[in-house]
Computed example of a mutant assay.
Amino acid sequence: MKIILFGPPGSGKGTQANLIMNTYHIPKISVGDILRNIISKKNKFSNIIKKKIDNGILIDDHIIINLIKKEIKNKNCINGFILDGFPRTILQAKEMEKNNIFINYIIELKASKEIIYDRILGRRIHLNSGRIYHIKYNPPKIPEKDDLTQEKLIIRKDDNINTINKRLLEYKKIKNKILQFYQKKIKNKYIKYIKINSQNNIKDIFIKIKKILNK
């Protein structure tokens, strides 16, 4: 079971990827998680990555491709994986197939711009652990404090209107190109392509995903 999980920022890709991973026992390979791990190392390379992310700029293809290939070589990917945030370019998609990495499912989560703004602008992060809160949907017990450590929560630098708008425009371009690349395989049913409204609650969204994957 090899899945690409698509969706704009704030659509819940990370949450649904975790649910799929825990239910079907296949690993999630998240570009965001990999890059955050690199940034935490605080070296010259991590500073370059951080600066690009803070400014809403996509990371170079060759960097992302090498990171993903390394992850897929791990033994825990033998029975499949979930790709969250990859591929983002035609070059990345082509490189996957050159390395005999073929996809079974593309799941696209859809959400309105208003919902996306609401989800992202209300997000709060515990920097050291990566725990995520939301002031409306998942508030901490003490406002602006992590539940476990009581350390101050932060707002990501890219969680602002200008960066969100840039990312939404970029996502639309990326999605159209990638779907065009896979169009023939989707038409011939080598890949099952599913669109799901992610404005519903987390549980209802995952029920729909399970119905598809259990077939």
Rank of each mutant, 00 (worst) to 15 (best):
N37P: 05
L127E: 12
N76L: 08
D33A: 00
G85S: 07
I59S: 06
G7C: 09
I34V: 06
I142W: 00
I72T: 06
N104F: 00
L127V: 06
K145P: 05
L91G: 15
I115Q: 10
I142P: 03
L168S: 08
L169A: 13
N138C: 02
F102R: 02
G85W: 01
P139I: 13
N188W: 06
D204E: 15
V31N: 04
N160E: 08
N99M: 04
K172C: 12
P139T: 12
L5G: 10
G32N: 05
K145H: 05
I103G: 02
K210A: 09
N18S: 15
M1A: 01
I154D: 09
M1W: 01
S198R: 10
N165T: 09
I207F: 11
I82S: 00
G130W: 08
I194K: 11
K192H: 10
I64C: 01
N74W: 03
I64F: 07
A17R: 06
F81S: 06
K187H: 10
N176F: 12
E170S: 14
I106W: 08
V31Q: 04
F102E: 09
E170M: 12
I125L: 15
N188L: 11
I57T: 14
S129E: 08
Y24I: 01
Y193A: 08
Y137N: 13
K113I: 13
D33W: 05
L5V: 08
K113W: 03
I191S: 05
M21H: 03
H126F: 12
I49D: 09
G56S: 08
I207D: 11
L19K: 12
K141S: 09
N43T: 02
K208G: 10
K94I: 14
E71N: 07
K210R: 14
M96P: 00
A93V: 05
Y182W: 10
H25W: 02
D61M: 08
G130M: 03
K215G: 13
K110Q: 15
L109H: 02
Q183N: 14
K52D: 12
E144R: 06
H134N: 15
S40Q: 10
K110A: 05
D147V: 00
N55V: 12
N214Q: 15
I155V: 15
K13V: 10
D84Q: 03
K110C: 13
I103H: 00
K185E: 09
I155S: 13
H134D: 11
K51S: 15
T89M: 03
L121S: 04
H126D: 05
L213T: 01
I107R: 04
M21Q: 12
I132D: 05
K136E: 04
K42Y: 03
D84L: 07
D147Y: 04
P140T: 08
F45G: 05
T163M: 08
K184S: 14
N165P: 00
K145G: 07
G85C: 11
L58C: 08
C77N: 10
I53G: 11
I196V: 13
Y117G: 02
P27C: 03
I194A: 07
F6P: 04
Y190M: 09
I132P: 07
P87F: 11
E114K: 15
L127K: 15
I38P: 01
I63G: 02
N128D: 13
K152R: 08
K50R: 10
